[in-house]
Structure formats: C-alpha cells, structure tokens
Design a protein around this nucleic acid. Structure first.
Lengths: 197, 197, 197, 197
DNA sequence: CCCTAATCGAGACGGTACGTCATGTCTTACA
DNA sequence: TGTAAGACATGACGTACCGTCTCGATTAGGG
C-alpha cells in the first residue's frame, strides 16, 4: 500500500507531466508520524495535510488512508532498526537477546508501541491494508528472526517464530503482563526447546 | 462493560417505572450478532436498532457502543463453549487438545474468528472497552487454560499461557499460517517444555 | 424547494420522533441571510451551519442547498413587502408607481438586489431550484402586478407583465442603465399602451 | 475577455519564441462548445482540455475561465447571425420581425438558449466576465436593434430596446411562457407605442 | 545553423467546498 | 419511567474542480 519513494525506476510508466514532489512526500510522512505519535485519536487526514502544508488531494493521490501513511513513515524512519542478531552463543540466548531488544523498542513512553498496536488493529478492518501491513512490516521481521535459527525443521522454525512474536504481540495487545527480560527468556527457552524436539 | 441480564437481583438500582424490556435486549443482541457476522463494516448502531425494531436510545441506555453489544452477544451465545479440558494424559497432549478445539471454533467460515479479531482491534482504540474485553473474555479463557497446568512455577505457567494464546492470536490476526492441529501440537510441546524447564 | 414552517398540518406524515426544531430553522435562515447579504461569495453551507450553531446535516435534512435557504429566508422576511397597488388613478400611473416602488427595493446599497440576481442566476443551473424560484418568488409577484390591470385581454396582460418585469430584470442583470423613475414611467407607458391596443 | 485570433498584428508583445498554436485554439473552442451543448454541468476545464487534446495550462494561458471560452466560441460561430433588419415597413412590424427571428435562435432544442442563459447567469457572479459579456454580446445586439429605430428621443429608444430584450430574456430565464410570434408582436407593439408617445 | 525563448501536452500541486456518514445525545408521544 | 421514532450537534470522510506550477519536448525567429 505505501508507495515507494519516487525513484521512478525502470518501471516508471510515463515521463511526462510534473514529477511527484519528494518534498511533499517527506513533509507528509513527517507530519503524520509526529501527529500520530502525539495523539493518534485526533490525527486526521485533514490535520496531516494541514501540518504538512499540503492539499488533501495530494495525500489521497498517493495513499489510500492515514494508516498507509503512518506505516510508510514507520518503515522509512525505522527500517534500520531491525535488530541484527549475534551469531555466537547458544540458541536460546540469541533468541532472548533479539526478543528483549525488540521489547525495548515497544515499551518506552515515546516508543512506537501504540502506533504498532493501532496499525495491527486497523489491519483487522481493512483487507487491503492488511496485505501491506503483513508484507512490509510483519513478514520482514519474521525473516530476521528466522535467520537466527540454524537448527530445526522448517515448520518447527516457523512455529518458533510464531511463538516468539505471538507472545510479544499478545502482551502488547492485551496488556495483562510486562514485556520484560524474564518474559523474553521464557519465550526463548520454549522456542529453543521446540526446535530441539 | 456489557450489562448483566436484567434480573439484576437485589442490587437493582430502581424499583419504579417501566421495567427494562428483556425482549428488546434479546432482539438487540440477536440483531447485532447477525448483522456483525454478515458484514461488520456496515453494521452501525442505527442498523442494529432498525433491525431489532428498537430506538437508538434504548441501545445507548444499556450499552456504550456496538462493540459492547457484540461482546455481550458473543459471551451469551458462546459462554458454554469454553472447552473443558480432560484431566488425563500427558500435559503436552492435554494442552494440544484444548488448543486444537479452540482453533476449531475460530477457523470455520461462519465462525466467530472475524468478530473476535474485530473486538481485539477495537480494544486497542478504546481503553474502557479494553477492560471489559480483557475481564470478560480474555482472562476467563486464560484461567481455563491455566487450570490445565499442574506443574511449574506461577510465572512459567503464565508465560506458557501467553505462549499458547499468543501463538493463536498471532496467526488469527496476521493470517500468515493455518490454525491447524500440527500448529497446536507444536505450541503445546513448547509450552510443556517451558513448564518442565 | 424551501420547506414550510414546521406547522405539520393535517398532512404531517407521522407524529412520532423528535419534532423539527423551529429554533434551528430560524437560526439557519437568519444566519444565511446575514452571511449572504454581507458576502455571498464566502457564504458556504459550512459557514451558515457554524454561524447558526447547527450541524451541517440539519441543514441538508431540510434544504438541498444554500440557495434554497436564502430563497426561503427572503420569502419569510420580505413576504409582506409585495407592494400593494393603489386602486385609483390612470392605469399607466398605477403601474409606474408599483414599478418604481419595486425598483426602490432593488437599488439601495443594502438591498436584496444582489441576492435576487444570484438566485436568478442559480435558477439557470439547477432545474429543481428553478421550480421553487418561479413558483415561490417570480409567479406571486407577477400575480400582484396582474391584479393591477383591469383592462385588456388575458394574453395582453401577461405580455404587459413580462414587459414590465422583463425590463426590470434586464437592467438589474446587465447593469447598463439605471432603475430609476424615468425608466419606470417609460415601461409603464408602454405597458398601458399595449393593454389599450 | 476572449482573445482575438493569434494574428495579433504589430501590437504583439514579443517576436521570439514558439508561436501560439491556432490549431490548439480551434480545438479548444470546438471542444468547449460541444461539451457545453451536451451537458454544461459536467463541462470542466479539465474535460475541455482532455477532449481538445491540450494541456490545461494552454487554456489558462489564453482564457481566464471556461465561460470565456464558451463566449468566444459562441461569438465566433454565431457572429454572422445578428439579424439584419429590413428597412421597409412600419416600425412595429420591423421590430417584430427582428425579435421573432432572434426568438427562433433561442427556442430550438439544439439552440444556444441554454448556453446564453448560463453565460448570463455566470456574469452575475463574476464582474470581470460581466464586462466581456456585456461588451461583446449584449451591447452589440442592442446596437443592432437600436439602428432599427428611427423615431423617438434617445432615452425612449433605449427604453424600447430594454423593453424588447428584457421581455425576451425574462421569458428565456424564467420559462413561464413561450417565445413565440404573438409575444414578439406584443412587445414590438408596446415598443412602437413608447417611441411615438 | 545553432541559440534563445515562448508554447505545447501532461499531470502533480495547494486549496476550498461539497454532500455523506456514523456517533452519541436530545426530545417527542405513547404505553 | 421505558420505549420507538427520529431530529439534533459534531466531526471526519473522500471527491470534485479550481487555477498554478513544473516537467521534458517542440517550434519558431534572430544571430
């Protein structure tokens, strides 16, 4: 759903007409992220357009909804943050480290936790957005975690990833327990056991 | 958040005036459930009121939003469905059975999966509803699962429940893999390993 | 197109539900008239709703456009202004008096001339409004003028009215000459001649 | 407001650069006229540009609005149609003939009546266009009619023209009666009487 | 025969108003 | 007092059109 940066590329469909404004794109992404982080509830397409100094139509020309903007902004500003795992140490420990560092990004007061929760929620109501959400955010992060696992059959490794991210999302969404180190270790232990079974 | 059936007992706050119509309550719950199952996107408070042959105010007098109605309807029609676990057999097997039977309720084409996803999504946006959602649906099911586990320390058992339900919700929400028997077994195996660690 | 005051009457289709708010109706009419008189160009449905302290939907529930509001407001505030003609004196003089007094209502700086021009213009683009415009404003005024004429065949009298009002509207719309006493007398003379021919 | 054909003569402000495309000008005028005659309501600058195979800027470089285009197209295609009056016969008859032939151009189903009504309407809302409208269409036709009148004082002749054209526009704009021969004769009779008074 | 400059088709841009939708509250008359 | 009906204030939505701007490509004289 989010559009790629207007690098046009070889698939660019036409070369005539005014080019898409990269300035406007960046302004929109920045405005959306700032407003959404401050107060998602009052963030509207209008408010984003106004703060970005942009016409509403310019937003709707490139994004189908404010959620797509926020997703794209999140990806752009945080793409580098996918934690690189360490190669050394026992499996359970490596998983626990990865998980704990991911937890840390969700827990802080100014973290993106609320945004991710809201996007996950929106994906439940909008199938088109769900595809973008899964393909651009969920699956890449799954792949990063999968690469940490050398052992086990494929389906076990998939289940291990589900177990780890599932445990994370569940506490993030239900808020009945903390996303702390101890939890990370327990999940990692269980995942490692699954892979060795 | 959902109100109890009107036979509220001696705590009923008023004794005068026209009594709450149980008929209307049932009509509203039934209408909400039917509309929501057919097409959640077009289900509005107005549409529920119209189909139930009821004034909108009658709805707002007793429920704060359509989501509370759906939650109450779901609880009322499905309360009995919380799977009773078997007491015999090895732990992993008992967990797998519980999980698989829960999966079965979510997978079918006319199942409540979509509704539960939508309610989980709404809970992310509405703190008041989140409380009801957690207290009336999430936590009771956690307790049912907890009771299946005899071994392990408390925190490990909590984590095991998170792992199991987390794995379930994750696949339910992201739809990247099936909620099938094999998955149930893998999650159960991991949970059992965690409890024995 | 404009709705009658909510006197319901015997044709009222139902008696249930909240009654239409006469207060809101009056507020909307007053707001529309004031804004339109000050600056028609910046008068929008939103601005009327805001100034009247009313929701936009309340406007669209009862009027199809701001033009219908203005027309209704004009009729309500000016209905009494249809000049009653004198019965005495020669025909040409009576017509000239009527015309001159009508001119006077259109010429002043705070007159309704600009509004009437705008409504006449809008009627050219909107057939539904054109019907209301003709039936509620144009034709009643024609009838008032017709009643001043005792002599002549019917078709001559119609043509005489067209001549008088046509001459008036033409100068109002094209602004190539003044709507003054001299012009009123010339038109009245011609009309009287037509009736006696 | 409409621009003259591009052979601007020695007053052209520049001598270098690409010349204005007469082809584009003709395409625009033709496209505007065709679209406007078919359905004025959906005729936008974009639609004209698209149908003419022209960029929007090419339109705005030479015309201030779609209305100016339509006016220019109308003048170009119909300039020759200003009825030449006959010099012989009694005044009332000459006027009636002129008027009837003008009526004929407005009455047909594919006539320019709707366009003229729309332009008159637009002139009420746009002072700049009103000037072009009056100077290029209204006043020339007034002059043509004035020249038919030999008798009478100047102000009477002006009023007679107003009476004739006013009667015409009034029926055109309000559509409460036909623009037929009988009406033309009545107006002509009244105008002649005015001139002889 | 190139240089300079205005025009061309195309289409993205900032902006304004529109008319619709859903929410949650309120006011009726009736039971 | 509860109820069905339905009007109300609010506020976001997504669309339409406006008139301006910026592309690269053309197309003229003037040097």
């Amino acid at each position: 759903m989010p559009t790629p940066p207007p690098s046009a590329g070889p698939a660019g469909r036409s070369r005539t007409g005014r080019a898409r404004s990269e300035q406007a794109r960046q302004d929109i992404l920045a405005a959306a992220l700032e407003l959404a982080r401050r107060d998602l509830g009052t963030t509207t397409v209008d408010s984003i357009a106004h703060r970005a100094g942009v016409g509403k139509q310019t937003i709707y020309r490139w994004w189908p909804s404010k959620w797509a903007i926020i997703l794209e902004a999140l990806l752009e500003h945080a793409e580098r943050d996918i934690t690189a795992g360490t190669d050394s140490g026992p499996l359970a420990e490596r998983l626990a480290t990865f998980l704990a560092s991911t937890f840390a990004q969700l827990a802080g007061p100014d973290s993106d936790g609320p945004l991710l929760r809201a996007l996950m929620a929106h994906a439940q109501q909008n199938p088109a957005f769900a595809v973008a959400w899964r393909d651009l955010l969920i699956l890449p992060r799954r792949r990063a975690l999968l690469e940490l696992m050398s052992e086990g059959r494929n389906e076990d490794r998939e289940a291990a990833v589900d177990l780890l991210f599932g445990g994370m999302w569940y506490r993030l969404l239900v808020e009945h327990g903390p996303l702390d180190h101890a939890y990370a270790h327990r999940l990692a232990t269980a995942a490692a056991a699954l892979l060795k079974a």
